[in-house]
Amino acid sequence: MQLINQVREQSPLVHHITNYVTVNDCANITLAIGASPIMADALEEAAEITQIASGLVLNMGTLNKRTVASMIESGKMANKIGIPVILDPVGAGASSFRNETAAKLLKEIKVNVLRGNISEIKFLAGLDSETKGVDASENDWTNSTDAQKIAQDLAIRLDCIVAITGKVDFVSDGNRTVAIENGHSMLSQLTGTGCMCSSLIGSYCGAAAEKTFEATVTALVTMGVAGELSFEKAGEVGNGSFRVSLQDAISKMNEEMLTRRALFYEI
């Protein structure tokens, strides 16, 4: 959990090519954890901006041909200079365009962390899945053993870290798998909490590229603990207050708080 200190000390620049629904949330959550966000999706500058970044987050939430091209160029640049790439395959399985884009990104870019909900990860693993827009279908939830195996198998196949977020989060590099039980159900009532998880992963990985597995776990614990604290403070008021409190909680997060409240274990 000490990696949070590394993020705050280094303030890594995290380049996002993300979606316009949650871009402000992603920028603010990156700032709240102590990193620095930049959002540059124009093809004319995307790769150049990536050259000065410490991490790259690619988010498929609102795709178009222009941003896909920018993602490819930025991803290739990130691979060239050796910074971590986090892919958030939002809505994979929902349309042919999303499916083709996810396949293209995974083929042309070395992804370090793949984070998605169970529907998205099941689809990318070649398993039957159901989507409800860009959310996981309630009919698509698997038990813990299934989710663990899906994460492990896909991590081995893609040679990357796979993170499945939901009621319980699973993070695997194919050898190690961790289950994280922090969080609150109210997080699922806000648009963008998955995107914010990817931004937190990008922030932690940007500060600790040599500890990508630990960085991913710590990022998801951070989000989960923040969700618990936010509900305790503002959950009964409503999800608008909960959203504001979520950012507050992350901005005030520290190593002691994470260590005390973290609920994760290796499987």
Rank of each mutant, 00 (worst) to 15 (best):
I52S: 15
S129P: 08
H184C: 09
I83K: 01
M253G: 00
E44W: 09
N5V: 07
T145Q: 15
Q51M: 13
V57T: 05
D153R: 05
I164S: 00
I250M: 09
D25I: 04
M39N: 10
S172P: 05
T216C: 06
M223E: 04
V171W: 02
A249D: 03
T30Y: 02
S119L: 06
Q51V: 12
G235F: 01
Q51G: 12
A234H: 05
M77G: 05
T216A: 07
S203Q: 04
L63V: 10
G238H: 08
S96G: 14
Y265Q: 15
N182F: 02
A219G: 08
V113E: 02
L56H: 01
D135I: 06
I150G: 00
G202H: 00
L13H: 09
M223C: 07
A69H: 12
V14N: 03
S198T: 07
A147Y: 00
N28C: 09
I86Q: 02
G194F: 04
G166R: 01
S185I: 13
E228S: 11
E236K: 14
F123I: 10
L56R: 03
L246Y: 05
L87Y: 03
S137V: 07
G55H: 03
R157T: 11
G240D: 11
Y204A: 01
Q10L: 15
A103W: 11
I4S: 02
A136C: 12
C205F: 02
K104V: 11
G116M: 05
A147M: 08
D140G: 13
M77C: 13
L124W: 04
A42R: 14
V237T: 13
T193R: 03
T212Q: 07
I72F: 01
G82M: 09
S230M: 06
T101F: 04
L58F: 06
A103L: 14
C195A: 13
A125H: 06
K149T: 07
A47E: 09
A69G: 15
K107A: 14
R157A: 11
S230D: 07
H16M: 15
G116A: 09
G82C: 10
W141Y: 15
T131E: 06
L263S: 07
D159N: 15
K149F: 05
G224S: 09
A215T: 05
L127Q: 10
Q6R: 15
L105C: 08
A32V: 04
A27R: 05
A207N: 06
G75S: 08
A40Y: 03
N5S: 12
V113H: 00
K65G: 14
T218A: 11
T145C: 15
A155V: 05
E108Y: 07
I121C: 07
S245I: 05
C26I: 08
V162L: 05
T191K: 07
Q148R: 14
F97D: 09
A40F: 05
A147W: 00
G126A: 08
M223V: 06
V244G: 09
P84N: 11
F264E: 08
T212Y: 00
K76N: 13
